[in-house]
Design a protein around this nucleic acid. Structure first.
Length: 267
DNA sequence: ATTCTCACA
DNA sequence: TGTGAGAA
């Protein structure tokens, strides 16, 4: 083909051209990502194929991929699109982690601000409660939830409503407030009286917060979303996936609201 | 300016 | 996932 002879470089020159250290080259070799040729002298020699592969390795590494995943990717013939999708997912999950950490700090700061001094032990408990939840499962749950809504939603109106609800509750302040609400709900549910004044008061309070959403959403859409939720929950439980909320608490308040409706205590 | 191994972060 | 030391 071309008159140009194949060029072979020693470790130093190769490292310089690829933008890594010779140490790194040998780590990649140890992990089975590149196999350089050897001169009689036992010196490593890197040719065009090796250099090309090294370039692939460094670009994937700069994306934050582990050597182990890079090994799988360069060995196979992956579409760049698939690599980027994969990496996007892991970055998103890291982002979730950071967001949860911030939420924990916000809750702690909030309590300190109120004059309540947290011990490290209490912070540890807070961390366990908030950080231990599985972001992957949560995302999976929400994705399935949305998919089921879309399935039964020819006009797309219910999906738009769901999007709005998600946006509405996406802020950190809302998340902290929501967490407080869930804790209160959990305590009320432990009491177990669906007709207690406290439970009914709680329902009224939550409904007043969500009045706007309910007003702008048709009965049919609300039912559609409810159905999708029930199905998603059933599927998740069938796979015994962990959830970040307690479905029993929601069911408890569904009963409270049901009772109130039957007695005409709700509009 | 290279090889290898080992300890260390 | 690399780095630095030390011997060859």
């Amino acid at each position: 083909m071309s008159g140009e002879k194949e060029q072979w470089f020693g470790p130093g020159e190769t490292a310089r051209r690829v933008g890594v250290t010779t140490k790194a080259l040998r780590v990649y070799e140890r992990e089975g990502l590149v196999v350089p040729h050897r001169a009689e002298s036992r010196w490593r020699l890197y040719g065009p194929t090796q250099i090309a592969r090294l370039h692939q390795i460094v670009v994937l590494r700069d994306l934050g991929l582990s050597l182990k995943s890079i090994k799988k990717l360069v060995g196979d013939h992956p579409r760049l699109r698939d690599i980027l999708r994969l990496q996007r997912e892991t970055l998103e999950s890291q982002q979730d982690k950071i967001k949860r950490a911030i939420a924990i700090i916000d809750v702690a700061l909030c309590q300190i601000h109120e004059g309540r001094d947290l011990s490290l032990d209490e912070l540890a408990i807070l961390t366990k409660e908030t950080l231990m939840q599985q972001p992957a499962d949560k995302k999976k749950f929400l994705a399935r939830f949305e998919a089921l809504i879309a399935e039964q939603d020819p006009t797309g109106q219910a999906s738009r409503t769901f999007d709005e609800i998600k946006k509405e509750y996406d802020g950190d302040a809302h998340k902290v407030a929501l967490k407080a609400l869930m804790e209160e709900a959990s305590r009320l549910k432990e009491v177990g009286d669906v007709n207690s004044e406290a439970a009914k008061e709680f329902v009224r309070r939550v409904r007043s917060r969500t009045a706007g959403i309910r007003r702008s959403t048709s009965q049919a859409e609300q039912e559609l979303i409810r159905d999708a939720y029930t199905k998603t929950l059933a599927e998740a439980q069938a796979r015994s996936e962990s959830l970040w909320f307690d479905p029993a608490v929601l069911e408890f308040f569904r009963q409270v609201a049901q009772g109130m409706k039957e007695r005409g205590e709700l509009n």
